[in-house]
Simulated assay, not measured.
Amino acid sequence: MAMRGDKPLSAVHLIRSYLLLPFVEAVEAKGRDATPMLSAYGLKSSDLVEPYFRLPFPTFLAIQQHAADLVGDPCLGLRIGAEIRSEQVGSLGLLMATSHTLREALQQFSRWGASMQEGWGLELVDTPSGADYVYRVHELGVSTRQDVEYSLANMCSLIRTRMGRAWAPTEVHLGHSNPSRARVYEGIFHAPVFFDQPVNKLVIARQDLMLHSERVSYALLPIVEAHLQLASEAATHDESLVRQVSLIVAQSMGRRPAQINDVAAKLGIPVRSLQRALAECETSFRDIMRQERRRVAENLLAQGRINSITEIAISAGYADGSVFSRAFRTWTGSAPSRSPLRKKGNG
Rank of each mutant, 00 (worst) to 15 (best):
L9K: 07
H13A: 15
I15E: 09
E28L: 05
A29C: 07
K30V: 09
D33P: 07
T35L: 12
M37Y: 03
A40Y: 02
S45T: 13
L48H: 02
R54M: 15
T59V: 15
I84D: 00
R85E: 13
E87A: 11
L94W: 03
L95P: 08
S99F: 10
S99P: 00
L106P: 01
Q107E: 15
W112I: 07
A114G: 03
S115A: 15
S115D: 09
S115C: 07
E118S: 14
T127C: 09
Y133L: 15
V134W: 01
L140V: 12
D147E: 10
V148F: 01
E149P: 00
A153V: 06
S157N: 14
L158T: 10
G164S: 07
A166E: 13
W167V: 10
P169C: 06
V172L: 04
H173Y: 11
P179S: 11
V184E: 11
F195S: 11
L202W: 05
R215G: 09
V216S: 03
A219K: 09
L220C: 03
I223H: 09
A226N: 06
H227N: 14
Q229W: 02
Q244T: 09
G254C: 09
A264T: 05
A265H: 10
G268R: 03
R272S: 14
L274K: 01
E280I: 00
T283C: 10
I306S: 06
I309H: 01
R326A: 14
T332D: 10
